[in-house]
Amino acid sequence: MVIRKKKGEVKMKKFLIFLLTAVMLLSLGLVSVQADDLKVALVVAGAFGDRSFYDSSKAGLDRLIKEKGIDGVTIECNNENHDIQLRNAAEKADVVVAVGWEFYNVEEIAPDYPEVKFIWIDNATYEPIDNLLNITYAQNEGSFLAGYIAAAVSKTGVVGAVGGEDADTINDFIAGYRQGAEYYGTENGKDITVEVNYANSYDDPALGKDCAIALNDKGADVIFNIASAAGDGIFEAGAERGFYAIGVDSDQKYIAPDVIIASMKKEVGTSIFDAVSKFVDGDDSQLGTTWVADMATGYIGIGYGDDDMPQQVPDEVKDAISGIAQKIIDGEIVVETTRS
């Protein structure tokens, strides 16, 4: 038996197909009409809500939308499909900001989209690429100050650092931190030991806590967090056992004002804002270069939280820090680095 479709049903279907096609064509037209504003796509390797690195980049984009009137899109990779997301972004936007050292394939992707301007945050390509700006951060310089503060506040003369993994970027923090702590030691005739361990995880706060406790067992009473979310465990261990911690990437003091005495700040958002602003103003001269955002340019520094929070770092140490920061800017102190 053949089931025959009613005439009305067929008509309905035809009408629906017509309607859908019309909507699609119209939306295509709308997209091409809107193309006046500069389209900026922010692609982050992880996800927003980390209260640190990625959120800072988002703040930069929000400021661009507000002050420069650009059209902003965000894409979160959640630590997978970096290449595909980067290509997706490049097909839609005029400027693609890749946030995270993980986007190393930008080296091959960027040349495929010569019309699109790329910015790569926190890492640099081996060879300069015509439509790509690399922004790296002199975290070693800020960590030098963190090390100095740690050594100055420490009572035991042992300061610690918990790293996320044994990798170049993390070791760049550690190199500066170690040098800064030892600088304080020689300056003030104090014996300073720097103890480091790696959590081998950025996600597991319980591991970070164990790492911090192990360092505290060795006598460390100020511990530097270089392990993202795993570092939350350091702050907890500090509250439980009565030692201090130093925050990382953004001013983290508000998370635990009694434990975190200072934070090493990387102004990721501001650097993105400044770089894209130049594109908006029609200045493309920075493409094809690597820009090291350092202390001299003001993108690296130390934060002590807000004034109403308890301040554990004595004022004379804060003054000394400003002096040392100037010496680093002037090149009087050369901070060691593991960046290539």
């Binding site: 996800a47 996600d203 319980a206 939350d232």
Partner: peptide, 17 residues
Amino acid sequence: HLSLGYLNGTFAEKMSN
């Protein structure tokens, strides 16, 4: 226990590790 005992009321994504 991991989030409320091992840690003091802390959750982090993928913390089961």
